[in-house]
Design a binder for these strands. Structure first.
Length: 857
DNA sequence: AGCGCAGAGGCCTAA
DNA sequence: CCTCTGCGCT
């Protein structure tokens, strides 16, 4: 199958001038039609089928296209059958997209690609196949974060640990972190295990795992971690998968965590040659009991040929990882950028291909994004280039507060809409999901259709979780968490006392709650009323389980919801959202149709993150920067570029410099989502925890190159005192507005000045002239410059970049000059204020712009 | 058992 | 600002 020849496609005359990537370029003119239109690097990435390949694909360089074309190529070359290709992504969205594109390319649906999916879904599938080796049954439940926390809470209670001091959430985070690093309870470094509850952390992790087995449940981390364990302990099983997967493709490799990395490494070894190696691994794992080094999993585990010179032949099969270190934004959930940085070391003989030609964004946008990301130190370094025109500059707009920001963006959107552009081509990308609300409110009043992507997940809603709990109990009677959730929903008179009693009973007899209930019903331990209710519940579930055999799963679900009284509960509820909840329940039942049976549905539901309602309607997309990765839009709004929010203070506090760099990558991701227009906003006042606070513009604004950025005024200008115009006089007596409308540079200078002068307006005081004049001086840091910043800031030199260009103490323009503006067209100057001009544009109306952006007409 | 209220704590990002 | 918890009352 995989002979080590480097030339893969049908031979083609090598007639092109030669340099690196010649072969690929040569072939570019001929070949299968799916190769047409690929650039030489892309083509190289598609056609290098043998051995490890790392494709460093910058934003918008055709990453997905390469992946899908590569699969098509493998298939059409007869190198492997669809079922022999393992292709992993992080999100369902990405997986779906790949399936979709493959379908288009191959001209038929891709049911034949059973191993194309997310890490979690594929990991889960493998685990189900060998569930018994992890002390589970194949119908195990996947617990989400909520279940996880509830379970841990129970454990903490059982151990008499004060969950005020030691919140279950924190423990959940720790356990997640350990699992992300591939650590089983016994492998957790003692020092780390001790940080929780005075040393009980490790023990709690262990008992949590035990509880999971009893509940016949796994959490997200287990879906990979248990696979790894099974692979290590059962070389024969590992070999079976190694033989099956002839090709491995990995999307977003920069986001892989240690566990995913280990999982991939195990699978990427060539089967026939690995068995001794694997056995070696098992041996090395055998002593995992005690005294492991802190990074046990990292250091000790991968005794792959790759990791050392000790092995002569790199028996690594054809793995192709695609990623972009500049888009690594999941460090907080254990992603190891190191994985991508170390690739060549881990997979010796790896070919590294860089995709640097961007097909998405215009020159200004790309330049702004590149310039921003260039402030990061830890990167492999890529230079994105485009052959597109410069296009419009990235705009930066200051607003008084977040409401005005939303208003301004709303207006801008309406304007775009008036130009005839699709709402589908507009996205608002926020740092934190709580920012979304303001936009939703605004859009509702405007009647602007929008959709929230990746917001509160469908299955996280209470009614959905309740409904699922019913189904889970039917499917897996040992699922105590689910049973507990619904035993008294709707109210049946089975309160805490009863549940506590069941718990005791269950623990004593080591049986699930449900079985305990069945047993208790026959005793007189409960009061008649509770006893009757409980008996009814047990009988209902027995009945439903029996019906399951003869009833379609969608019908069964409907029956369960109706007979349990759950539907009725919401019908009686007169609160505002009851109707919506009923609607959601209907939607849930409807969505079950896509699955073959109840089991299949439950397997997927916890892993499927996105609810995809109405994707075909024309609507503005609202989402977090994180969930925007991989998407693109003509128009992208980036609100909330303020210190504390973006970059997030918490990230800075917790991760320091690394955190800052990750935030910056997030900014880079945001900007590179835009094809034609990127519009950044910052507000001077924002609600934090419900109280208004004054904020400072994000340092990232200063890191944007002046040449590609334009400072504009908010269009939601009414908050500026009621009129669109502005003037020194106005700001003189409106202290609060003083700094709101400045460029970032101003604002810094302003804050600086205020500190110096001992005024405390939170940066909000100071007259207009003052701002203007201090504009230039901000390029050189004042003595106490750093003091107003929440964190110590880096060298201030960057400050000058944005400032310098737009700085000018006096403008060369004067009143009623006829001017031209790249974006707004022709207009007449109606007011001059330092370097800020107010111009009445013929078409765009009155605008405030910095003079360097206009020229005399 | 169940309801309503007051107080506390959280808002980062995700499968 | 919003949700969750615990408490006291019915």
């Amino acid at each position: 199958m995989t002979e080590p020849s480097k030339i893969t496609s049908e031979s083609v005359p090598d007639h092109q001038p030669a340099a690196g990537g010649i072969a690929a370029r040569a072939r570019a003119s001929v070949g299968p039609k799916y190769l047409a239109g690929l650039n030489p690097e892309q083509r190289d990435a598609v056609e290098t089928l043998d051995g490890p390949v790392l494709v460093l694909a910058g934003a918008g360089t055709g990453k997905t296209r390469v992946l899908t074309t590569r699969i098509a190529h493998i298939l059409s070359q007869g190198r492997a059958r669809p079922a022999e290709i393992l292709s992993v992504t992080f999100t369902n969205k990405a997986a779906r997209e790949m399936k979709h594109r493959l379908g288009q390319m191959l001209g038929h649906a891709v049911e034949g690609m059973p191993w194309l999916g997310t890490f979690h879904s594929i990991g889960g599938r493998i685990l189900r196949t060998h569930a018994e080796l992890a002390q589970l049954k194949s119908n195990f439940t996947v617990l989400d974060t909520d279940d996880q926390v509830r379970l841990l809470k129970q454990l903490l209670q059982a151990d008499n640990i004060d969950d005020k001091r030691w919140p279950a959430r924190m423990l959940a985070g720790l356990i997640d972190g350990w699992k992300n690093r591939g650590l089983t309870p016994s492998q957790v470094p003692p020092g780390e295990a001790a940080v929780f509850a005075n040393g009980k952390g490790g023990k709690l992790y262990a008992s949590y795992q035990e509880r999971l087995k009893i509940l016949n449940a796994a959490d997200f981390g287990d879906l990979l971690l248990e696979d790894i364990r099974i692979f290590r302990e059962h070389p024969d099983i590992l070999r079976q998968y190694q033989q099956r997967f002839k090709y491995i493709l990995v999307d977003e490799y920069q986001d892989t965590n240690v566990a995913q990395y280990l999982w991939l490494r195990l699978l990427s070894q060539a089967p026939s040659l690995t068995s001794p190696r694997v056995r070696g691994e098992v041996a090395s794992q055998g002593d995992e009991g005690e005294g492991d080094s802190p990074s046990a999993a990292l250091v000790e585990t991968p005794p792959l040929p790759a990791s050392g010179a000790r092995e002569q032949a790199p028996h690594i099969k054809n793995i192709c990882c695609v990623g972009d270190d500049d888009q690594s934004i999941y460090g907080w959930r254990g992603a190891e950028v190191d994985n991508i940085l170390r690739f060549e070391h881990d997979f010796p003989g790896a070919k590294v291909i860089r995709l640097e030609r961007n097909y998405r964004s215009t020159g200004h946008i790309l330049a702004a994004a590149s310039h921003l990301i260039a402030h990061n130190e830890g990167r492999l370094g890529k230079t994105l280039r485009t052959e597109d025109q410069d296009g419009e500059k990235v705009t930066v707009t200051g607003s008084w507060d977040s409401e005005e920001e939303a208003r301004g963006i709303g207006e801008e959107i309406e304007q775009i809409q008036r130009k005839g552009e699709k709402l589908n081509e507009i996205a608002i990308l926020v740092r934190a999901s709580y920012q979304m609300r303001e936009f939703e409110d605004r859009f509702v009043t405007l009647g602007l259709p929008y959709r929230v992507i990746g917001g509160p997940r469908f299955y996280e809603r209470a009614e959905i979780r309740d409904a699922l709990a019913y189904l889970r109990v039917i499917n897996s009677p040992a699922d105590d968490l689910a049973f507990e959730r619904i035993v008294n929903v709707p109210k049946r008179g089975l309160g805490d006392a009863t549940v506590q009693m069941l718990h005791d009973h269950a623990r004593k007899r080591r049986i699930p709650l449900f079985e305990a209930a069945r047993a208790v019903v026959d005793t007189d331990e409960l009061k008649p009323k509770a006893r009757g209710s409980l008996r009814e519940v047990v009988a209902q579930f027995d009945r439903w389980r029996a019906q399951r055999e003869v009833t379609a799963h969608t019908d069964l679900a409907q029956i369960v919801l109706d007979e349990s009284g759950y539907t009725e509960m919401w019908q009686k509820d007169r609160s505002a959202d009851a109707a919506g909840r009923l609607e959601n329940l209907k939607e849930l039942v409807r969505s079950m149709e896509e699955f073959e049976n109840l089991q299949g549905f439950l397997e997927h539901i916890s892993l499927v993150m996105d609810r995809d309602s109405g994707a075909d309607e024309d609507a503005v997309s609202l989402m977090t920067l994180h969930s925007a990765k991989g998407l693109e839009f003509d128009n992208v709004f980036l609100p909330g570029w303020e210190e504390g929010l973006f970059p997030s203070q918490r990230t800075l506090d917790e991760q320091g410099r690394a955190g800052l760099e990750e935030e910056r990558r997030l900014g880079h991701v945001g900007l590179t989502r835009a094809r034609r227009r990127a519009m950044i906003y910052f507000a001077t006042n924002r609600r934090i925890h419900g109280t208004w606070s004054t904020t400072i513009p994000s340092r990232f604004l200063d890191e944007l190159p002046a040449a590609n950025v334009e400072i504009t005024e908010s269009k939601g200008g009414s908050a500026w005192g009621g009129t669109g115009g502005y003037g020194a006089s106005r700001f003189d007596d409106m202290e609060a507005f003083g700094s709101t409308y400045s460029t970032p540079g101003w604002q810094r200078a302003q804050a600086n000045r205020n500190r110096g002068g001992g005024r405390n307006g939170g940066g909000g005081s100071g007259g207009f002239e003052e701002q203007t004049s201090s504009f230039t001086s901000s390029a050189s840091p004042g003595p106490d410059f750093g003091s107003f910043s929440p964190r110590r800031r880096g060298p201030m030199t960057i400050e000058g970049e944005l400032v310098a260009k737009s700085t000018g103490t006096t403008s060369e323009f004067s009143l009623s000059d006829r001017v031209f503006h790249q974006k707004f067209g022709y207009g007449r100057v109606t007011k001059v204020d330092g370097n800020k001009l107010t111009i009445a544009f013929d078409k765009a109306g009155e605008k405030k712009v910095v003079d360097s952006f206009v020229q005399l007409a």
